[in-house]
Design a protein around this nucleic acid. Structure first.
Lengths: 229, 229
DNA sequence: CCACCCCCAATAGTATGACTATTGAGGCGG
DNA sequence: CCGCCTCAATAGTCATACTATTGGGGGTGG
C-alpha cells in the first residue's frame, strides 16, 4: 500500500527528503501555495508540515517573503527524521561517517560514566550481565542476528547505566544509522572470541567502578568493529 | 511586551513548558478542544503545536483517543526547545548535570577528531589560532566577558575542525545550557594561566595531529572548569 | 542624481466551520 | 462467556475568509 501513512506524513516526508536531496537547495524560496501544488495536500496539512520543518531548522517562514530553505548548518542533524532522510539521500556516506564518529565520542565516555554510577551506588549491572550472558549463548547459536541483537542490548545497557538521558537518546540516534548499515554490510560481524572478551572486561570494569579501564575497553571494541575511518 | 511572539509560539511554549513541568504528566489524556481552551488559541494553531510537540516525542495523537502525553524516555532531549524548557522547570539541575556529562563525552573526542583531520590535511588550525590569540589578549584586558567569549570561540573552533556536523550541532546544544548557567554562577571563571597553557597545548597537539594528547588536554580543561559532578 | 520616506501588494498567520476516517467501547447475539 | 457489530468520539483533512506584517517600488525633497 503506497498511501498507508497520513497525508501529513506523506507531505512531510516528501518535502523533507526533497530538501535533503538538494532538490530544494539552500536558499530556495517558495510559498505555501507552491508546496500545496507540489505535494497535492491541503493548506492546513502543508502549514503543519512547514511548522515541523521549521522546528527542524530546515525552513524559515516570513511574511511577504515566503518559505525559504535554510543551509545545512542550521538543520537539526540529531533528529532521527533528518538522519533517515540523509541516509536515504546523496549524503548517505557522510552521514554514516558522522554517526561512526559520534559513536567513538559517546560510548567510551558513557562507559566511564556508568562505572562512576555503579561505584557511587546509583546503578546495578544486572541488565549488563544479562546482555552479556545472552551474547555468550548466541555466539554458539546458529543465528547471527541473535548475536547482533544481544550486542545491541549490551551497548544499550551501558548507555542506560550512564544515568544520562541525553546519552541514551543519542544511542537511539546512532542505532538508527547502524541498522541501516546492517542491511548492506550484513553478516560481516560474526561472533569473535576477542570481541566477547572485551565486552566481558567492560562489564567487569564497570562493575568494579574503574572508569578509565571501562572507557579504554569500550574504545577498543568500537575501534575494532568500525574501522579507523 | 508580553505578546511579542506569535500565537503559535506562545501556545507551543505554554504547552511544552506545562508538559516538562509535570503539569500535564506522563499519560495525561486531553483533546484538541481541551488545548484550545487551555491556550486560548484557535484550532489551526493548536493543531500546528500538537504536530511539533509530536515531532518532539512529547505527545501522541490518535483518533477517538485524543492527545496523550508521552513519558520522558521518548522526548527529544537533544532539542534546544526541550532543553530550555527543562532548564526553566523543575528538572533544571538534572539537565545541567546531563549537559556537563555530555560535554565530558563530546569535547575530548572532538579534539581527537580535529587532530586527525589536520594530520590528514583536511583542515587548518587558523580559526583555532585566532581564538587562542584572542584569549591571550582578553586575559590581560579588564573585560571578563571578552575572555569567556574567546574561550567559547576556541571550543567552537575545535568542534568545527572535527569535521563532524553532528558534533557541531551538539556544541550549540551544550552552549545553550552553559549560557544559562553563566547567568547564575557568573564571574567565577577568571582568566587562569594554567588554563590558558592547556588551551595552547590542545591547539598545538591538534596542529601536530596528535590525537591522544589533544584529547587528554581537552579532558583536563573540562575537568578543571566543570567539577567532577 | 541621490537619499529618504511612505504606501501597497504579497504572503504568512489566524480563525472558523464543515466534512471524513478511524477506532475503542459497549451492546447484542450466539 | 466470547466474539462480532454498531456507534459515537475524536483526530484528520479540506475549504474559505479575514488579519497582520513587511519588503520593495515609486514618489518626493534635497
Amino acid at each position: 500500500m503506497t498511501t498507508a501513512a497520513s497525508a501529513f506524513d506523506r507531505a512531510l516526508d516528501q518535502l523533507g527528503a526533497a530538501i535533503v536531496a538538494g532538490e530544494l537547495p539552500d536558499g530556495h524560496a517558495d510559498t505555501v501555495d507552491g508546496f500545496i501544488t507540489r505535494t497535492g495536500a491541503s493548506r492546513s496539512v502543508v502549514r503543519e508540515v512547514t511548522r515541523v520543518l521549521g522546528a527542524l531548522g530546515m525552513l524559515s517562514a516570513g511574511r511577504r517573503v515566503g518559505l525559504r530553505v535554510l543551509p545545512l548548518a542550521q538543520w537539526d542533524l540529531l533528529d532521527p527524521r533528518v538522519i533517515r532522510w540523509r541516509l536515504e539521500g546523496p549524503d548517505r556516506e557522510v552521514q554514516l561517517a558522522e554517526l561512526r564518529s559520534l559513536r567513538h565520542a559517546v560510548e567510551p565516555a558513557a562507559a566511564a560514566a556508568a562505572a562512576r554510577e555503579v561505584r557511587d551506588g546509583r546503578g546495578s549491572t544486572r541488565l549488563l550481565d544479562e546482555a552479556l550472558v545472552a551474547m555468550v549463548q548466541a555466539a554458539d547459536g546458529p543465528e547471527n542476528g541473535d548475536f547482533l541483537a544481544a550486542d545491541r542490548a549490551f551497548h544499550a545497557a551501558v548507555l542506560d547505566l550512564s544515568g544520562n538521558a541525553m546519552l541514551l537518546r543519542l544511542r537511539e540516534v546512532i542505532e538508527e544509522g547502524l541498522r541501516h548499515r546492517a542491511l548492506v554490510e550484513r553478516g560481516e560481524l560474526a561472533p569473535d572470541r576477542h570481541d566477547l572478551a572485551l565486552h566481558q572486561e567492560v562489564a567487569e570494569a564497570i562493575g568494579a567502578g574503574e572508569e578509565e579501564r571501562a572507557a579504554a575497553c569500550m574504545r577498543e571494541i568500537i575501534e575494532r568493529t568500525t574501522p579507523a575511518r
